[in-house]
């Protein structure tokens, strides 16, 4: 357990021992003969893969020190809470994925969105 010290501002850095590895997507990359646009596109691609993975593994709630303050609770008509931490962070990532796919498509019309993106689009029909 971490010793309790006078509350220091949280750093945004994750542990050096917990590096993320995504198959086929190197993180230390060469910039030789690579355009700015190619670099930025690659960042989109990697982020999409990262989001897919987080959602697939249900690994989207940040550790306690990385969390932002919770908004007041909201409930549906059955009295079930609708904005739990899980719901909020999941929604945030899904929304980011939609933005990223749209951006990637605007750059490259042949871009193939992840399967999950289509599933999500289908499930985004109004429910509430």
């Amino acid at each position: 357990a971490m010793p309790e010290e006078p509350r220091k501002r949280r750093s945004r850095w994750g542990e050096a021992s917990q590096k993320m590895e995504l198959p086929g997507l190197p993180t230390a990359i060469s910039s030789t003969n690579i355009s700015q646009a190619q670099l930025d596109n690659y960042a989109i691609q990697l982020r999409l893969e990262e989001i897919n993975r987080k959602l697939r593994l249900n690994d989207y709630v940040p550790s306690e020190r990385e969390r932002s303050p919770s908004p007041p609770p909201t409930y549906d008509s059955q009295g079930r809470r609708t904005n739990t931490r899980e719901v909020r962070y999941k929604k945030k990532l899904e929304e980011e994925r939609v933005r990223l796919v749209e951006k990637a498509l605007s750059i490259d019309p042949n871009f193939r969105p992840p399967v999950e993106y289509h599933q999500q689009k289908r499930s985004l029909r109004p429910q509430e």
């Binding site: 945004r12 994750g14 542990e15 590895e21 190197p26 993180t27 230390a28 940040p62």
Partner: peptide
């Protein structure tokens, strides 16, 4: 830094690093 920071997480995002040439 390129070696050590690649793949580290920053606010929940995985960092990509690359070395830039001075004449870029």
């Amino acid at each position: 830094a390129v070696r050590q920071l690649a793949g580290r997480s920053f606010a929940g995002r995985t960092i990509i690093t690359t070395l830039m040439r001075e004449d870029d």
